[in-house]
Amino acid sequence: MTDKDNALFSTIRQPPNLRSNLADTLAAQIESGDLKPGQRLPTEQAIMAASGVSRTIVREALATLRAKGLITTHQGLGAFVSDDPTPRSFSIIPNDLQSIDEVLRVLELRMGVEYGAAGLAALRRTQEDIDRMQDRLDALDRALEEGGYGAEEDYAFHRSILVATQNSYYGRLFDTFGNIMVPRQWARLDKMTAAERKRHAARMRREHHAIFTAIRDGNEAAARRAIRSHLSKSAARFEELRGATDLS
C-alpha cells in the first residue's frame, strides 16, 4: 500500500463507531475523486493495516458502500469504485444507526424536516388526514399499552403528519428512511423496570397527543412547538443513555 493510500485513511476516527467512520472516509474519498470510478480499492488486509480496524469492520464498511451504490465487488478480484459512484438517492440503512451519536444526527435531521411539516399539516390537513392521524395514534397507544416498542406505529403516525402537508415530497422523503427513523434497538425497554416502562409509555402518549391536537385544531405555532418538544426530548433521552453507556 502506498504512502498516499495510508494518508487517505489517516483521518479515520476510532470511537465510537468504527464501521461508520471507515465507510464515511471511503465515501468522502470516492465523492471527492481521490478514489476514481473503476479504481480498485486496496485489499481488506491493506485497509486493516492502514486504519487499524478489524476485518469485520472493514467488511461491514464495504457492505455499506455497496448498498449505497458507491462500489461494486467481483469474486476473486476485490472491490472497485462504481463507474457512476454518485448516489442516485439519499438513504439511511440500518447499519448507519449503530451508535447513539448516529441516532442523534438522524434526530437533528428529523427535527428540521418535521418542524416545517407539522406547521404545514396544521394549515392544510383535511378531515381524511385527521382521521388517518387519529387511527395511527390509536395504534401507537395500543402498542405502548401492551408494553411494546411501538416503532412501526410511531413511524406510521409521523408519516401521516407528512402526508397531511399535501406536499408529496415530504412523504417520499420519509419513505427513503423507513421505520429505522425510530431506532428501537436503542430504546432499551428490556432494561426498564415496570414503573419506568409505564412512565415511558405515558410520556410518549402525552407528547404524540399534543402534536395531534395542535394539528387537528389548525394551530400552526402549537404544532411546531409540540413536534420540536417531542424530538428534543427524544434527543435528550438518548444523550442520557449515551452518558450512562459511557459510565458503564
Rank of each mutant, 00 (worst) to 15 (best):
79 A>L: 01
94 P>W: 06
110 R>I: 06
99 S>T: 14
8 L>H: 05
6 N>A: 13
188 R>T: 11
87 P>M: 02
3 D>P: 06
31 E>F: 03
118 A>M: 04
199 R>G: 04
99 S>H: 14
234 S>Y: 05
166 Q>E: 06
39 Q>S: 03
167 N>S: 01
20 S>R: 15
170 Y>A: 02
17 N>V: 11
69 G>P: 09
26 L>F: 01
207 E>H: 14
215 I>A: 06
30 I>N: 00
155 Y>C: 06
141 D>L: 01
33 G>H: 02
124 R>T: 08
18 L>D: 05
130 I>W: 09
82 S>W: 01
175 D>I: 09
79 A>Q: 00
195 A>L: 11
171 G>L: 06
88 R>S: 08
50 A>H: 07
224 R>L: 00
127 Q>T: 15
213 T>V: 05
208 H>N: 14
152 E>C: 07
29 Q>G: 15
147 G>E: 06
241 L>Q: 15
21 N>C: 06
15 P>S: 12
41 L>E: 01
222 A>I: 08
50 A>G: 07
228 R>E: 05
241 L>Y: 04
202 A>Y: 07
26 L>M: 15
84 D>Y: 01
6 N>M: 08
200 H>T: 10
56 T>C: 05
27 A>M: 08
19 R>S: 13
124 R>N: 14
37 P>R: 02
233 K>W: 04
149 Y>T: 13
107 L>C: 09
73 T>D: 03
208 H>M: 09
168 S>I: 09
56 T>P: 03
108 E>R: 10
38 G>P: 03
173 L>S: 07
125 R>A: 14
108 E>T: 13
217 D>V: 06
243 G>V: 12
3 D>T: 14
205 R>N: 00
162 L>H: 04
240 E>Q: 15
225 R>W: 00
71 I>Y: 00
228 R>H: 05
83 D>R: 07
214 A>V: 10
77 L>A: 11
234 S>E: 09
168 S>G: 08
180 I>S: 11
1 M>E: 02
234 S>K: 10
113 V>G: 01
173 L>T: 11
12 I>S: 08
82 S>M: 05
91 S>H: 09
10 S>K: 07
214 A>S: 06
91 S>N: 10
113 V>K: 01
93 I>Q: 04
213 T>N: 08
139 A>Q: 12
38 G>A: 01
240 E>W: 08
78 G>M: 03
248 S>V: 14
173 L>K: 01
111 M>E: 13
134 Q>L: 07
61 A>T: 09
48 M>E: 12
190 D>T: 12
185 Q>E: 13
235 A>F: 06
13 R>N: 09
121 A>N: 03
119 G>D: 00
154 D>F: 07
29 Q>H: 13
196 E>M: 08
